[in-house]
Design a protein around this nucleic acid. Sequence first.
DNA 1: TGAAAACTCAGGTTTTTTCCTGTGCAACAA
DNA 2: TTGTTGCACAGGAAAAAACCTGAGTTTTCA
Lengths: 216, 216
Amino acid sequence: MHKQIILVDDHVLLRDALATLINSFPEFNVLSVASNGIDVIKAIEEGNIPDIVVLDLNMPKMDGFETAAWLKNNHPDIKVVILTMYDSEIALIRLLQAGVRGFLKKDIHPMELKNALIAVAENGYYYSHQATGKLGTLFKKNNDAGNSIERAFLTDIEIDFIKNACSEMTYKEIALKMSLTPRTIDNYRDSLFDKLNVKSRVGLAIYAVKNGVVTF
Amino acid sequence: MHKQIILVDDHVLLRDALATLINSFPEFNVLSVASNGIDVIKAIEEGNIPDIVVLDLNMPKMDGFETAAWLKNNHPDIKVVILTMYDSEIALIRLLQAGVRGFLKKDIHPMELKNALIAVAENGYYYSHQATGKLGTLFKKNNDAGNSIERAFLTDIEIDFIKNACSEMTYKEIALKMSLTPRTIDNYRDSLFDKLNVKSRVGLAIYAVKNGVVTF
DNA sequence: TGAAAACTCAGGTTTTTTCCTGTGCAACAA
DNA sequence: TTGTTGCACAGGAAAAAACCTGAGTTTTCA
């Protein structure tokens, strides 16, 4: 065995600590580490082909989504495991479509990381119980509402709006900044309240923080 | 040398990874790890006396503040280093008073962790440039306003209010829950807006998240 | 190609938030 | 004692947020 792993996280301390931990697993070896998607691509194009890439979602420059998509298109044989702080129910399906093989939260036990890596290396897939649970409720929610799965996603504009809503701007100012009418902003807000099941702008901001839509 | 360290963090993965990393430093050895302050006390009372305790701030049961205070009172010879996600300017002075020897953010480079541990072990103190910078502006802010240092802190009620403000409750509902009049709630809000330099409830919530007043 | 969905915009109303200027009381220090 | 400070509370007003119903235009896709 001795599967090769590339570790991608912009938190250097956590990343290097994880690298040391993973290297202590006899089955795995950390081939290299990176701070963002661009560095991963660079490493891979230089010939460092790993078996598994362990990806953080929130990174500057090129985040987990983009990196997962690039890997799927250019190296479909490389398996991708997501390791994130947030229980991003929004992110899950999008990641599934990007061909991600595993989804883990950062508050797991080290043994679960090891098990997940082994499962992905051998069987090809690993989803934590938490993740599968989320998926279940997510599908259920959409079926109940009679919506298609696509509705569960956030569009780029919605994400942009949410980020702006997590500030001290009024909706009028947000409208100006986004080159939209306040009325349109109203609609984005209302549909997001409905879609994300929140009741106020603060609730929306909290949701955004919890799910890693915004980071600080 | 070979200083003994106890590592305290409720994120098991990060904690164990850090333990592996620190054990790779020839100067240090991880004596034991813990998920909260209570477990640290247990370990120490069982005779595992470390040279340094590396503490996360936000933990269930007994957080970094309480644990640091207990250590200062019961084992003043043990040095305390804080390792946190947040640049808690609120927390800094409080921690200084609790006799904390070092303050680090989790997004540092592993080498800075090593240097910090060495500095604390040898000289007794280490504060990152970020932290000292924060301290400077904090002192400056208070001098400018002609306030005493104490004013920089948040009272228990203020923290309670902030936590409630980071929800979908209206102020009326918060007032009910806190057994205060809506008018009084208004005053807490206004004085916090002024004290923390924010302009809206969303701004307050964002501040709270950034500084670890609330966690998710 | 026709129906469904997404995107943009509108008027009007109610509720909530934010801001303003005040009062009374208790604790505490000069 | 007096003056400062913290704390709880008040009325009123302006701004913002939230909620309602509606409609035209484009995109998507079956």
